[in-house]
Amino acid sequence: MLERIARGDMRAFETLYRAYFARLARFIERTTRRPELVEEILNDTMFVVSTSAHKFNRTSKASTWIFAIAYRKSLKALRDVDDPVEADDALEAVPDTDAIEPRDEVMRTQLRRILTEAVDALSANHRAVIELTYFQEAGYREIAEIMGCPIETVKTRMFHARRRLKALLPERLEDIL
């Protein structure tokens, strides 16, 4: 597919675009938590895919290559809008637990909301690891390739993200778990 795109095959490119659109949009939105920037970042990513397809060397999967571009574009967008990529002290964003009601269904929904908010409070590279692991179902080796970092760094980021999520979640919620 990327070979056809490298030769300027617009139909192949459109097929690829549509196949990746939802996954990429989600990854970018969860990594940047900037819904208003998602389409721009996504199109910047796919622009690079279309113009650099001839540089794709089959040492990695096509999806890994494309997500790696999306990850770099996401971080760049965050830097451009002065949103910290590394800084990890967004503790003010600790979710509010008073709203939780002790009914099962409600509890479940609340729990999800709180966890989602807790993930939002992580740094961008922690959010990316979480999203790639739990939603995009990538293994840690692939995540290391996408993020351009050693495997150990992925494991460490994940461990810190989990620990931080626990810290962000109030005790009452831990009891529910």
């Binding site: 675009y17 549509r18 659109f21 999800r112 979480i130 999203e131 739990y134």
Partner: peptide, 24 residues
């Protein structure tokens, strides 16, 4: 397992036709 469930939240759908037209 809880984390995995929590991360399955759906995000609002986006208009792929419009986005592709912009890139095209």
């Amino acid at each position: 397992r809880q984390l995995r469930e929590a991360n399955r939240v759906a995000l609002p759908e986006r208009d792929v036709d419009r986005a592709f037209a912009a890139l095209r």
